[in-house]
Nucleic acid binder design. Structure first.
Length: 333
DNA sequence: AACTCCCACAACCGCGGCGCC
DNA sequence: GGGCGCCGCGGTTGTGGGAGT
């Protein structure tokens, strides 16, 4: 596993390329092909190392390079592929004709990564961040100082904020659970994390208990003060509630009145349609209203679903078409 | 007009994989 | 099987230009 000493060699030029150097490199490659990159600089009359020449050619001078801004489709493809491949820029680049791995990497680091973070998603996992600190700014915004002074003690407010934080984390986790996954009987994330329908059910129940508890949460309004706040207030305060793909289902509120438990039919799973991206946040900009896929219709059925893999909306509807047509995807999947 | 800050992107650096001997 | 040389990849840095003050 030897190391190339070329970059350490003295006297070789580094830094930005001049038009003359570009011309020499292009002229030589057009005439002879690049052959051995190590030998090329000498043959082409360049005072550069082979590595530098290769980089200049592959990232800038190659004739088939597409310049200009990334299109929405390209952006979506990058997100899809990144959610599967991670930082395998060269692998991603093979699916974007005319784009180099370097260009994609830069675009990711300067645009997409920031965008995902801003939307509350972990850029590495493409999942909603569930740590409390990521929701902290939102929680702070929720704190109504006027109400704090006028109606509650500091202790009550502390309890309230803690509860809100817990709910925030639960809802983000719930959203994660409700995302349809390729696996039928379980929602499996990565190899190290498998969550069953039962966990979703338990979480729903815990939210139900929170709702029924006497603890006040949400930003009180004149009408809600002194009563338990509906889950609508959680939905309203949910960081991603503006996204069609990430809404707390409206049916959350309905079953609470006359039922002791939340049935599976009381929630719906938002399906990523065939044109929906893998990264949920993008759906808010590209697919206005993803089709809904019904969850199992009863607790009993939910049990069935766990054992018989009868869950609807499997592999074909989860993965975007662009990936399903892709041999590399099947190789990975 | 001068300065500072920020952003985008080109280029560099170091590591690992692979083929050859 | 091990050493060597080359190539490709991913992370990081450097630089130029535009925006803001």
């Amino acid at each position: 596993m030897g190391r190339s000493p070329c970059c350490d060699e003295r006297g070789l030029k580094k830094g930005p390329w001049t038009p003359e150097e570009d011309h020499k490199l292009v002229k030589y490659i057009h005439k002879h092909g690049h052959g051995s990159w190590r030998a090329l600089p000498k043959l082409a009359g360049l005072n550069r190392c082979g590595k530098s020449c290769r980089l200049r050619w592959t990232n800038y001078l190659r004739p088939d390079i597409k310049r200009g801004k990334f299109s929405q489709e390209e952006e979506q493809t990058i997100l899809n592929l990144h959610s599967i491949l991670g930082n395998k820029w060269s692998a991603i680049a093979t699916h974007l004709p005319g784009r180099t791995d370097n260009e994609i990497k830069n675009f990711w680091n300067t645009h997409l990564k920031k965008k995902l973070i801003q939307m509350g998603f972990d850029p590495m996992t493409h999942r909603p961040r569930t740590d409390i600190f990521s929701s902290l700014p939102h929680l702070i915004a929720l704190a109504n100082l006027k109400e704090l002074v006028e109606h509650h003690t500091w202790e009550e407010q502390a309890v309230r904020l803690q509860t809100e934080a817990a709910q925030m984390a639960s809802l983000q986790y719930l959203q994660y659970l409700l995302q349809p996954q390729p696996s039928m009987s379980t929602f499996s994330n990565n190899s190290n994390s498998t969550v069953t329908d039962m966990e979703t059910y338990n979480l729903l129940n815990s939210l139900s208990l929170m709702k029924d508890s006497s603890i006040q949460f949400g930003t009180p309004t004149p009408s809600s003060l002194g009563t338990t706040t509906t889950l609508q207030s959680i939905q309203d305060s949910f960081p991603f509630c503006h996204m069609p793909d990430l809404q707390v289902p409206s049916s959350f509120q309905a079953p609470m009145d006359n039922k002791d438990i939340v049935q599976a039919s009381d929630y719906t799973v938002l399906s990523h349609g065939e044109h929906s991206p893998t990264s949920p946040w993008l759906a808010s900009t590209t697919s206005p209203s993803p089709p809904m896929a019904a969850a199992p219709t009863s607790i009993a059925n939910m049990g069935d679903a766990c054992s018989t893999s009868s869950y609807e909306g499997g592999h074909s509807s989860f993965w975007p078409e662009v990936l399903l047509e892709d041999p590399l995807f099947h190789e990975i999947a």
